[in-house]
Design a protein around this nucleic acid. Structure first.
Lengths: 281, 281
DNA sequence: AGCTCTTATGAATCATTGA
DNA sequence: GTCAATGATTCATAAGAGC
């Protein structure tokens, strides 16, 4: 599959893309007052004004039947939750977006801490926006097996697990696959249970690969185009690549673009090396 | 414990209550366009205007160090999530409330169903508002058992734990290793996992008793006063009664007040019958 | 394979200190 | 005053190593 990496502010970079070429935008922008050393730290009061012109570009490049998924969470300021995310939702609607749904990402291993009048924050928002009510959705791609015994096994819907299981089948070690056959599948809900990533320490705000993977499966098919305008270390692009989607990644920090390129190349090499073997070569 | 039940619109009934007499308001108001047969079905566009004068009364009767917890979820209108909850939060802040936190109630067994472009809705908001940053909170009342990791970790403190402690504290003995010894309870997060209740069929919007119970334990002590201005079948009041708090319940529908009174009396009778036995009589 | 045990770490929050 | 930087606090999960 093809991927393009761009260094720069997505506000400018996206102007070079044609209209209506993207099927899914999945992104986790810098939250207000976070990642200030790398992104300049947008103030909560300025956040909506900073975001909206970029959202206008998202709207332009997204296909009319595409989907825009925004991962964000407001921080606490002076003992209160900031309201900029609420204001952003209202403003995006005024820009013409439909606020179709709000998914909850339950972070099972959230950051530790104890405070006298607050518990640990264990969830983030995944806001789904659309240009039209007739957006594309492939629900069967994210169905989960029912029953507790396989829940632990399939909590991670990663492609590597699937590949490993398939290889087990091929080699005669398919212990679980036969059990799955005939098991009823169920549709998930709008609450996702995923742990935060423990592996990637080169980017300050990486989300687990299973998060973009889930939405890429739900809202795109193979050869569709995925965009992450705040790419970071490229987790969204790696997930897209593994799922055989095309991808466009943008980040303003050259170091992150380099990391993303490295991760994508590393995957491509592993993938290329594995391919002949799995085919019997 | 004492409880008062009132039939009427809380906007009027609350005006009879003195100022600053309530420690916790826990309520699940009629959602917009829901329960239209009983509450008249407030339109989404009118919801904030309908709610705000009642919120002003909540603010008046709540103690300065008390807490207001609002259980609410926006419905889907024309394929989109309504925005009246977002607007309500913004408007409540303008009224002087602090939006301290947003808890998520994850409904483990949510209503079944399937739609072409939407999954089942498995969560609701529990919005915490306060009059002051110095509100009362009794975290130890809602602690949950820790996982097995605690025992394993304490058996032999890992090298990293020891190094982290020493590097941060400097003293030879870590800060709270002693706290961990023998500890079996941990503080929860802001995500609650509770099943929905199927028991009460006579009221259209019943939540499980564990939901108000959790917040009553967290924000009040025995003999404190709990208010539910949209009482429904009285789940909040029963929870308060069981926890030996005083309670005020209001509902505009006489039938619901009757149901609530019946549930409270049923509990009191059981409780009274148990009392002598449990005291050894 | 299937256990146990070890280890790292995650968009956090608050109070205090310093500019 | 306002604002920025620093230090202290601390739990669940998954990957990996070992048996």
């Amino acid at each position: 599959m093809a991927y393009q990496l761009h260094t720069g502010d997505c506000l400018q970079v996206l102007q070079q893309l044609p209209e209506a070429c993207i099927d899914l935008i999945f992104t986790s922008p810098p939250y207000a007052d976070q990642r200030s050393k790398t992104y300049g730290g947008i103030r909560p009061a300025d956040y909506v004004d900073w975001f909206m012109p970029r959202a206008a570009q998202f709207q332009r490049v997204l296909k009319p039947e595409g989907t825009f998924v925004l991962n964000i969470k407001e921080k606490v300021v002076a003992g209160e939750r900031s309201t900029y995310v609420l204001e952003l939702i209202l403003e995006l609607r005024r820009q013409g977006w439909l606020w179709t749904e709000e998914f909850i990402w339950h972070k099972k291993n959230c950051y530790p801490g104890k405070w006298p009048n607050r518990f640990r924050d264990a969830w983030e928002r995944l806001l789904q926006f659309n240009r039209s009510r007739q957006f594309k959705m492939y629900q069967e791609n994210v169905m989960v097996p029912t029953g507790d015994w396989c829940k632990a096994r399939l909590r991670r819907l990663s492609e590597t697990d699937r590949m490993r299981d398939e290889s087990k089948v091929g080699s005669g070690f398919g212990k679980n696959i036969s059990n799955w056959v005939g098991r009823s599948l169920a549709y998930p809900t709008n609450v996702l249970h995923l742990a935060t990533e423990c592996a990637n320490r080169r980017h300050s705000a990486a989300f687990p690969e299973t998060l973009p993977e889930w939405f890429i499966r739900l809202f795109t098919r193979a050869n569709d185009w995925v965009l992450d305008p705040f790419m970071g270390s490229g987790t969204t692009l790696v997930a897209a690549e593994k799922l055989k989607r095309n991808a466009v990644g943008i980040d303003i920090v050259p170091e992150y673009v380099a990391i993303a390129r490295g991760q994508l190349q590393a995957y491509d090499e592993v993938s290329a090396a594995d391919y002949p073997r799995s085919m019997g070569f």
